[in-house]
Design a protein around this nucleic acid. Structure first.
Lengths: 345, 345
DNA sequence: TAAATTTCTTAAATCGATTTAGATAACGCT
DNA sequence: AGCGTTATCTAAATCGATTTAAGAAATTTA
């Protein structure tokens, strides 16, 4: 039952035709090259019967096309990225692509190494990247001209690449406005390292703008950066500082992992939301709807993001194949405010 | 700055040696073949300076080794699998492997198609699989003899493959015992489709055994199978039936997604846990510790599972390379009971 | 100095597909 | 019959690496 693995040459010999002919049939070029219907049938039948699968390494080598796309993310452990990855896989699969997943752990050096390997060694046809880079130089240096690259979630100025993400400024602006409308006068902000990535900067700016709109003075010490590698400890200290000493009456956190640890800290310190602090987070999450009180959040349209990222990448790959000009799109989807109980009294 | 992409031949010409020599250096065989130290230095320098990356498709073709492993899971959306995937990626990366991720959505046909493509076309060096198959035939038919395969989470009898998972019978047995000890006399069980996969069967058996131990008669109608594709609806109906009509005083659910929807349903129906029903779930989860009341769960050692799955696969790949016999390990890690407030009064 | 050895280097075959250019056979037409 | 056409098919080059077998240069030995 377990049949031998044939290559195209053996298969051709078995059928009694040349491998050229088998290749024609395999690639739907039989008609184009005038292969008789009878022969086509014969070849098709043999392919199916023997379960022949052409070697993708051989095709890759010859065609310089891998049907592989690289998905390089900062942290697949974060459900936000895991969800997007799933969406991307789903769309890629439909279009005949496989995805290679790689995790940078927010390390720029690792990011560059991985990209180098994926692009130049593995030969992936394109890359979807959530970059942790501060500057575009090292990325630019390794990218072949007109290489299909999608920046997901995080922009990187100075690089010509399509970007798929939400309007972080607006999401943050709206949520902060909402907290203010709920009565908060002194709103803490918990950001996450690295603080230089675009969504974080945009969100901080959205927060500032909302304060300004409301005539509230921006106080830098109310903004605390949580280190990606020691979230638990930093959150505890930050909440301690902001609530214990700065006496905030509102807290907005820029990431769902931070939010989780805030909730833990609130329980530990016996802080009651929304009574003591109005609270909200970025990135909605199953926990938020079930928690008591339910947690307000800025929701990113994850399915849409994944879909768009892949579709745009597929478009770029297609254009590259046909050697047209590559136009880079900047997609800024609208985030959605999910107002629940943690942010209003 | 953006330098041209060289292949080994161009690189060799540039340096003024043969590509054979470059290849020797590249593969650390320079000493073995007696390349002079001076030449080695020269070649090394050029490789580094020009950032040369050998084409992996060419190497794959020649060496029949891809340094790729396939990770085929039923549902990457499930945090349990996402976590394991992250662990596997981490260990694989260290060992120089890339992972291709594929999602079967619990569809056996899709699973076979994907495996076929990964093994025979992509040429992955090995596969880690959470199978949705009922019978091993179709899998056996496509697997080359002695192919490195790890079954993760789910066993499949009749197939010679290493299996990495936990002792599901024991986990379920212990948790059911705990519910009984807490005073539950009529315990509902929510399983998930497909019901024939080994962990589910083992868990159901553990549940039965615990009832038997306690002298409680097993009632088949207290066991309800939730369909993977319509969890929300099924959970609602099942809870309605079991609590509303069968008057259960305990509920054990076999999957964290089901648990989530149970909590929603409880709120909707105003069922108080642990007061009205003692409740617990399989697969621990951040939600469970933060929810009020906190939810008891059978925790699987996710990091350990991912690590073992990869290490065992790497071992098999290594043995295959050196053409030794492949011994198949059956790893059954101990699950851990996390007792919180949902399961005791 | 010539022969034998050792040291270093390279030409060419190979992996399995695709594709170009060309071969062969059958056919129609004058 | 002879010649151009058309319809089918195939030989051989190619992609970029690895590796075997063998060649050239340097060194030692006789």
């Amino acid at each position: 039952m377990t049949h031998k693995k044939y290559n195209i040459e053996e298969l051709a010999k078995k059928i009694g035709v040349s491998k050229t002919l088998v290749s024609f049939v395999l690639n739907n070029k039989a008609d184009k090259y005038g292969v008789s219907k009878a022969t086509q049938k014969k070849v098709q039948a043999a392919i199916k019967k023997l379960g022949f699968q052409p070697s993708s390494s051989a095709r890759m080598l010859r065609l310089k096309k891998s049907n592989l796309i690289g998905l390089v993310v900062a942290d697949i452990g974060n459900p936000f990225f895991a969800q997007i990855a799933m969406q991307i896989e789903q769309h890629a699969d439909k279009a005949g692509y496989r995805i290679i997943i790689a995790n940078t752990h927010e390390d720029p050096k690792k990011e560059i190494d991985l990209l180098n390997a994926l692009i130049h060694s593995q030969g992936v046809d394109g890359v979807i990247l959530t970059t942790s880079l501060k500057a575009p130089n090292s990325l630019k240096a390794l990218m072949p001209p007109r290489y299909p690259l999608i920046l997901l979630d995080r922009k990187l100025s100075g690089i010509a690449a399509s970007t798929v993400g939400i309007d972080n400024f607006e999401g943050s602006h709206e949520m902060t406005k909402h907290l203010i409308a709920g009565g908060a006068k002194k709103i803490g902000l918990l950001t996450i390292s690295p603080g230089y990535i675009s969504p974080i900067k945009d969100r901080v700016n959205g927060y500032k703008k909302a304060l300004e709109d409301a005539g509230i003075k921006f106080e830098p010490e109310l903004v605390q950066e949580i280190s990606f590698s020691q979230i638990e400890k930093d959150v505890f200290e930050a909440v301690n500082l902001l609530y214990g000493h700065k006496e905030i009456d509102g807290l907005f956190v820029l990431n769902n992992q931070i939010a989780r640890h805030c909730l833990q800290t609130f329980e530990k310190m016996d802080i009651k939301i929304p009574h003591d602090i109005l609270f909200s987070s970025f990135d909605d999450n199953e926990l938020f709807s079930l928690y008591n009180p339910s947690i307000s959040a800025v929701m990113q349209p994850v399915e849409k993001l994944g879909e768009l990222a892949f579709e745009e990448l597929a478009r770029l790959i297609g254009e590259k194949d046909s050697d047209k000009k590559i136009a880079h799109e900047q997609v800024g989807l609208k985030p959605e405010l999910i107002i629940r109980n943690s942010s209003k009294r």
